[in-house]
Design a protein around this nucleic acid. Sequence first.
DNA 1: TTCGGGACTTGACACGTTTTAATGAGCCCG
DNA 2: CGGGCTCATTAAAACGTGTCAAGTCCCGAA
Lengths: 340, 340
Amino acid sequence: MARSELGPRDGTVGIRQVAQQAGVSPGTVSNVLNKPERVAAGTRARVHQAIKELGFVRNGSASSLRAGHGRTIGLMILDLANPFFTEMARGVEDVMSEREYAVILCGSAGLMQREERNMRMLAEQKVRGVLVTPVSDDPRSLALLRERNIPTVMLDHVATRADQCSVTVDDVTGGRLAVGHLLDRGARDIAFVGGPLTMRQNADRRAGALSALAAAGHGTLREVVVEEMTPRAGHEVAEQLLGDLPDAIFCANDLLAMGVLRVLLQQGVRVPDRVLLIGYDDIEYTLASAIPLSSIRQPTYQLGRIAADLLLDECDHPGTHAHQQIMFQPELIIRESTSP
Amino acid sequence: MARSELGPRDGTVGIRQVAQQAGVSPGTVSNVLNKPERVAAGTRARVHQAIKELGFVRNGSASSLRAGHGRTIGLMILDLANPFFTEMARGVEDVMSEREYAVILCGSAGLMQREERNMRMLAEQKVRGVLVTPVSDDPRSLALLRERNIPTVMLDHVATRADQCSVTVDDVTGGRLAVGHLLDRGARDIAFVGGPLTMRQNADRRAGALSALAAAGHGTLREVVVEEMTPRAGHEVAEQLLGDLPDAIFCANDLLAMGVLRVLLQQGVRVPDRVLLIGYDDIEYTLASAIPLSSIRQPTYQLGRIAADLLLDECDHPGTHAHQQIMFQPELIIRESTSP
DNA sequence: TTCGGGACTTGACACGTTTTAATGAGCCCG
DNA sequence: CGGGCTCATTAAAACGTGTCAAGTCCCGAA
């Protein structure tokens, strides 16, 4: 049997078998797959027919080797355990799935080292582009992608350079809204509980909090920095605060706030009567909370969708694509934890 | 300049440049990368040095084209918005990250159609293996992978065939534990709220519930089937039940239970005094709930880790690998929502 | 009838790596 | 001293698709 009649790996079917079945050349099959408009409708139909009959599945490796990249994008987020990020990931996945792209998911866990390792891995995989919530402003890991002309969109982080897109929510305003609200409710001694200030999100929310205090002309901010922004960390902070309770607590995310709330209630501290409590992100799971949690809402799912759209636009129209820095405004959601 | 001195795509560095720099042949560089033990220590060091100096990053597409598969695995779960699945995904990602594999994440949203489309995409990407929580027992989408000899591990689903691994939790026992507990607490008129019974998880939990009733010799089960297992669906069910409240409600997952709880409390129904409520999965976010939720705990994160280990074992030792069907036992967690 | 030109199609090569069989360099022992 | 080892390295042949210059075909105008 002639070589041309055998498929790849002596068993499966490749572009050549399809071509033979449809009575065209391999080149034409490739065109049907990649530039359908260039092939006559009749031929196209015959090829599609052959594809279906033979159960042909394109070899993505060969395709990306030749083309320089494949139908895959990378998504790097800070924390796989945080509903805020997984909700964002859902937005990305929905868009990419519609457009027939595969999504490689990576979690950096906030570690520069893991971020860099993942970036290298994505470069190796020849992804078409990358959506990333960076650990910090350090451009080292991004350089790896830039060298290889892999488009990048910043997620939940403003692009410091004008040569890329970003989608963010204004965290300074968010912090201001939160603390402004606490001040309105009469709080003066306010605690800010957040993660490392090297993370932009924490730094901005804190800055917003301070600016609200400055604008009001009264009130003080105690700052508590935690390693991880989890309910567990919230527990520890709350226990620590029990000895000298502030008027109000502003947590830099809802997971922390959930942990704090739990301990306060267990210890009989009345919320909001004794302590006001507000979180950030407005994740869905605080709805059933003992005291419904006030929070700062972000268009989380949309963040993911829009970033994905921007990335695909850059991939599809590298010439005409105009980089955009999109910033959403957050919204103050008042619930029982701050309103008597 | 001779072709051999230029890099791939006239700019980046390839295996050839590394070889030249280290004074060896391309084949040796490849061996350093893939079978380090076959190359002498001195040569190996020289090659690594050259790799670092030139900033070489392997072209994964070329690699998987030649080798037949790459360092990528597929992970297909039912619902990206459900913390149970994202927690499982976290376990998978942690293991794969350690072993330098990339993870392609797909959500089937419980739709056969999306499951099949994703499977095709994974086959196209030449993934090394796939971890999948299947939508149903229909083997059509798995066939696509089996034809191509792509190893598969079932996640949260028992393998019906002995030629693959699976990692599950005993949902029948889980259902029995839940309803047995409700009966112990004196409930007789019990409602079961769950998703489509075509999903094994729902069917098994229901079966367990029924067997608990049978064992007790008393009590009845009202069955409420919802489309989606979300808090929103829980709201609707609860409103529907308000007119004729049962003694107890068993929700097939915690998200449903959260929605149900919220409406009950809003309407002034006392939990657990008037209605007992128990969920399933024991997700972290119910901890801060108004009435802490009783639930059935599963080793979620471990599920992901172990499934990932099994898959990698099958990939690394295709000859000696012994397929395993691992089943964990769930644990009843009693909290306030079922104990006065 | 011939020629020009547009619309499709073709064929062969290139993409960067892995793999195979073959080569070379030592080394031991008869 | 040389034959038969082993271990380390090499050269060249794939892997299956995308690309692009070079056709082929067909139709209408001259």
